Amino acid sequence: MSTREFAALHHTETPLLLPNAWDHASAALLAAQGFKAIGTTSLGVAAAAGLPDGEAATRDLTLSLVRRLGTGLYLLSVDAEDGFSQDPHEVAEWARELADAGAVGINLEDGLGSAELHAAKIAAVKSAVPDLFVNARTDTHWLGDGDERETVRRLDAYQQAGADGVFVPGLTDPARISALLKTLDVPLNILYSPAGPTVAHLGDLGVRRVSLGSLLYRRALGAVLDTVADIRDGRPSGGNTPTYDDVQALSAQSPQP
């Protein structure tokens, strides 16, 4: 599996549907469903360890997870929050560690901080690890008010810095997606929303990558709540449940970090 192959998945007629895993078992199950590329979810990694998301608390956990997943038979992209540092050179060195561990892509979010600093991080990563696919995320719709001019300004800076793709979570309106696409020279990544357009509709608009983010992790937690409520209240408990042996088989395949 190569970085070039991962980049090529962003230039096909059908958008890349990128599911996000939080441990070896979830990644292995997704790979078994035929997904060529899998991302990580920073919320899932953090919450599973009892740590907050988005506060640079999971740097070591993320690297350990990538060392475990990076040898899998799929292309791995890493949700790296803001790079776990405000020093572009430190972010670049950490990106190099991720690439050495088997990652082919990295997701870097600006958190609505300085666009110039975020662009410097992107440029530093691309200089240190040219083949690593950098997906530059802006949080204008996620944390801000969705100002279109600010979104375009930030994404233009990230493109100029060398980003291979850009990501705007929280943007779901088809008309606004179409308008944004006209300003871009790199593939656009949209976060799937159950209340938003389907993957096929997003593809028709021109979106080239659709991420699931923390959705699968949160749905897994929801299944825990539903199952225990059914058992407690005497109802039959349904749903797709891998057997003990199925899960054991996944664990036996896990390389040591």
Results as ranks from 00 to 15, higher is better:
residue 7 A to E: 03
residue 14 T to P: 04
residue 15 P to D: 09
residue 28 A to N: 06
residue 38 I to P: 03
residue 43 L to F: 11
residue 54 G to R: 03
residue 57 A to Q: 10
residue 63 L to T: 03
residue 66 V to N: 01
residue 68 R to S: 12
residue 68 R to A: 11
residue 70 G to T: 04
residue 73 L to D: 13
residue 74 Y to S: 04
residue 75 L to P: 00
residue 80 A to I: 14
residue 80 A to M: 15
residue 80 A to G: 11
residue 83 G to Q: 10
residue 85 S to K: 09
residue 87 D to G: 05
residue 88 P to C: 07
residue 91 V to T: 12
residue 100 D to R: 14
residue 116 E to G: 10
residue 121 K to Y: 07
residue 121 K to T: 05
residue 123 A to C: 11
residue 124 A to L: 07
residue 125 V to Y: 01
residue 127 S to L: 09
residue 128 A to T: 08
residue 140 T to A: 12
residue 141 H to E: 08
residue 142 W to P: 02
residue 144 G to L: 08
residue 156 D to F: 11
residue 162 G to M: 00
residue 163 A to M: 05
residue 168 V to Q: 01
residue 168 V to A: 03
residue 178 S to C: 00
residue 178 S to I: 01
residue 180 L to P: 01
residue 187 P to M: 08
residue 188 L to V: 12
residue 189 N to W: 02
residue 200 A to S: 12
residue 202 L to N: 04
residue 202 L to Q: 04
residue 205 L to K: 03
residue 210 V to I: 14
residue 212 L to C: 13
residue 213 G to D: 05
residue 213 G to W: 00
residue 219 R to I: 10
residue 219 R to F: 07
residue 222 G to A: 05
residue 223 A to C: 06
residue 228 V to P: 07
residue 230 D to V: 14
residue 233 D to I: 13
residue 234 G to W: 10
residue 237 S to W: 14
residue 247 V to L: 14
residue 251 S to H: 04
residue 251 S to Y: 04
residue 254 S to N: 01
residue 255 P to V: 10
